[in-house]
């Protein structure tokens, strides 16, 4: 019987600095199974012995399952330990787990991504999918808000590569610009970009990821603009011990974030307790 708690051995092959507290790590698996197949929005459990495990969203290109990329913010013990590792070091990884962004439902439709802070990681596979298959979605609009220009992850991709994908529009905004910092985009919380949304609420799907407070105000703004709550999707984050629907920690009402989520439609989410993503 396969033991779902035993991680696979993976080696760090590349480390890229994103911001002062965020890096993108590339992993290759040491076992014969090699790569990792996943769907956008899924996560893995990253294991560093002596420290524990943490759930991290997959940020890689799903058309290239040969390796795994995780964009990680240093927030706790496991991520802190990961930051002290270097290329060639080994970690444990198991997964992928969870449901996914409803990418196939968005085919032929307009797609709006609303991103706050480090939330970009879980939506990167969606952007890369769109880059690889630019005709699948009618259009993609990305609204990305961060605290300062220094907090924007994948900055050069947003500015140079992804904004050049056909039918793609990327709007960036920061809460504040420190002195002597060059910034050509918007200033204000992410919802200030909402005035400029070109996506048609009638037919669009919206994928939101970021802190709960940011998702809350995004949902409020989007509902006002006439977006359909059934087609607004949020990615929830909880500290998980197993990722298997067994340890109980990530429960929201009748749902496990690890198994029934992490992606929930707003219609589903608003009936669940113990989170703040609600419009009332």
């Amino acid at each position: 019987m396969e033991n779902p708690y035993i991680p696979r051995k993976a080696v760090i092959t590349n480390i890229e600095d994103e911001t002062y507290d965020t890096k993108t790590f590339t992993f290759e698996f040491k076992d014969c199974q090699k790569g990792i197949e996943f769907k956008p929005g899924q996560f893995v459990m990253l294991s560093i012995f002596g420290y524990g495990e943490a759930a991290i969203s997959i940020a890689s290109d799903m058309d290239d399952p040969s390796h795994l990329e995780l964009t990680v913010r240093k927030v706790g013990d496991v991520t802190g330990a990961l930051f002290s590792l270097k290329e060639g070091d080994q970690v444990g990884i198991r997964g992928p787990y969870g449901n996914s962004w409803p990418v196939s439902d968005a085919e032929g439709k307009q797609l709006l991504l609303v991103i706050g802070g480090c939330g970009c990681g879980t939506l990167r596979p969606v952007i890369l999918y769109h880059r690889n298959n630019p005709k699948k979605f009618k259009s993609m609009e990305v609204l990305y808000g961060a605290r300062t220009p220094g907090d924007i992850i994948y900055k050069k991709y947003h500015e140079e590569e992804w904004s050049k994908i056909p039918n793609t529009r990327i709007l960036l905004s920061v809460d504040r610009v420190p002195e002597n910092t060059y910034w050509k985009h918007e200033v204000g919380v992410v919802t200030t970009l909402f005035e400029d949304i070109k996506t048609n609420p009638e037919e669009a799907l919206v994928f939101i990821c970021g802190p709960e407070i940011m998702m809350k105000y995004s949902v409020i703004g989007l509902l006002k603009l006439g977006f359909n709550p059934d087609r607004i999707f949020c990615s929830m984050e909880r500290r998980m011990r197993c990722g298997l629907g067994l340890c109980g920690h990530c429960q929201l009402g009748s749902k496990y974030v690890c198994k029934d989520g992490p992606i929930f439609s707003y219609t589903e989410l608003k009936h669940l307790p113990d989170h703040i993503v609600r419009s009332d």
């Binding site: 012995f49 002596g50 524990g52 011990r241 197993c242 067994l246 340890c247």
Partner: peptide, 21 residues
Amino acid sequence: CYCFEVADIPELSLNQGVRIR
């Protein structure tokens, strides 16, 4: 009730230990 906590318990050598629930 089934909920469980998971923790790594390293030995003093630090590079060996157990993961328990």
